[in-house]
């Protein structure tokens, strides 16, 4: 019989409300709360329930994920359910984070459900199956039913249909598909052409993602008076990575004080290193100035070519980082730079 494990937060795991949102992750050898509903509907059995407080996951994601993956190491399971998270943002993000990790570590299908407004949808729809869900727990039965029906289909080995037919959020994963009605491309092309000519609605078979281009800024009038900041997606951080920036698919950034240094010291000197997993770190670890060129900027400062180098540099990791996350981090960093009256930024990538 197929085995499933369910992830719930402190509330749906019947620990309590917001006051216990710091509840540390635990695994129980039983069906708790909503897990019972999954068990009823599933062509199989829910063997365990994992419960974790939303705040605990939110502020200690790496630790929480590691501990949960540890719980699962010796368990046999064929499918993993997380949520439904409705419109609860922290819960949605938690379901996505743990779901993604479970999928990567154990290569099983992971299914969740969230309301379309839940930020977890945008962050994780590419990584796991997320079904559009209700706004609140009133929709619990409907949402779980959708998730389990799809889970049953996966377990039975039945061929999965495109996202629009199965109902989960599109994941940006495109495969070729033989049309049931065998409409040839020449009919589809003519149909689309006539509709476009006549100003009628048509559906492109390859929707072009919206391209968000940024206009090039005006040049700086007097560089010798400008304060310039260094920003990198090359993952240069202090040796202990105090902001716990992820090595890939980053969601965090950090800023590091450099007003008192002429150049960044390297990893051997226990100062700066790179945590970027997308390139060979050898050169950056040997001389982090090659990614964040503090030494060159100091020289320009001395020469009077630039006014000054800003006292912090900003860092995150670019590899695998989604466009949405990159844009959010970029906006947050820009906000600080504007508040501190920075005129220009040199952005180094790798």
């Amino acid at each position: 019989m197929a085995k499933a494990i369910v992830y719930l937060n402190q509330f749906f795991g019947q620990i309590g409300g917001e006051e216990v949102a710091d509840h540390e992750p635990e695994i129980r050898n039983e069906k708790v709360g909503a897990a019972m509903l999954y068990d009823q509907l599933l062509d199989g059995e829910v063997t365990h329930t994992i419960i974790c407080g939303d705040n605990f996951m939110g502020s200690n994601e790496e630790q929480a994920v590691d501990r949960i993956l540890g719980f699962l190491k010796d368990k046999e399971f064929d499918i993993f359910f997380a949520g439904p998270a409705f419109q609860a943002g922290r819960y949605g993000i938690a379901c996505g984070a743990i779901g993604k990790a479970v999928k990567e570590e154990f290569d099983v299908s992971v299914i969740s459900s969230m309301n379309e407004e839940n930020p977890g949808v945008k962050m994780y729809k590419k990584d796991i199956y997320i079904f559009p869900g209700g706004k609140s727990a009133a929709k619990m039965r409907d949402d779980v039913t959708k998730m389990v029906e799809f889970g049953n289909k996966i377990l039975s080995g039945e061929k999965l249909l495109p996202a629009e037919q199965e109902g989960f959020f599109k994941r940006g994963i495109r495969h070729q598909y033989f049309l049931e009605d065998e409409t040839p491309a020449y009919e589809r092309a003519i149909d689309m052409l006539l509709k476009k000519i006549n100003g009628e609605d048509f559906v492109s078979e390859l929707p072009i993602p919206e391209i968000d281009t940024v206009e090039i800024a005006d040049p700086i009038k007097d560089l010798s008076k400008a304060t310039i900041a260094l920003v990198t997606s090359g993952g240069i951080v202090p040796i202990d990575n105090p902001d716990k920036i992820q090595s890939a698919s980053a969601t965090r950034w950090g800023k590091y004080y450099i007003a008192d240094v002429d150049k960044l010291k390297n990893r051997r000197e226990e100062s700066f290193k790179t945590i970027h997993a997308g390139y060979d770190p050898k050169a950056a670890d040997a001389d982090p100035n090659r990614v964040v060129p503090v030494d060159a900027m100091r020289k320009y400062e001395q020469e009077g070519k630039i006014g000054s180098l800003y006292e912090y540099f900003y860092s995150t990791v670019g590899t695998g980082t989604s466009q949405d996350e990159a844009a959010r981090m970029g906006k947050e960093i820009t906000q600080e730079l504007i508040e501190n009256n920075i005129q220009a930024v040199i952005e180094t990538s790798t």
């Binding site: 996202a163 994941r171 598909y177 491309a185």
Partner: peptide, 22 residues
């Protein structure tokens, strides 16, 4: 890979294949 199906994507217009999100 589909790459080596003889004129398989039938871009001249016969193709009954399309692309879908999964």
């Amino acid at each position: 890979e589909n790459n080596s199906m003889f004129c398989g994507d039938q871009i001249a217009g016969w193709s009954t294949k399309t692309m879908k999100e999964f």
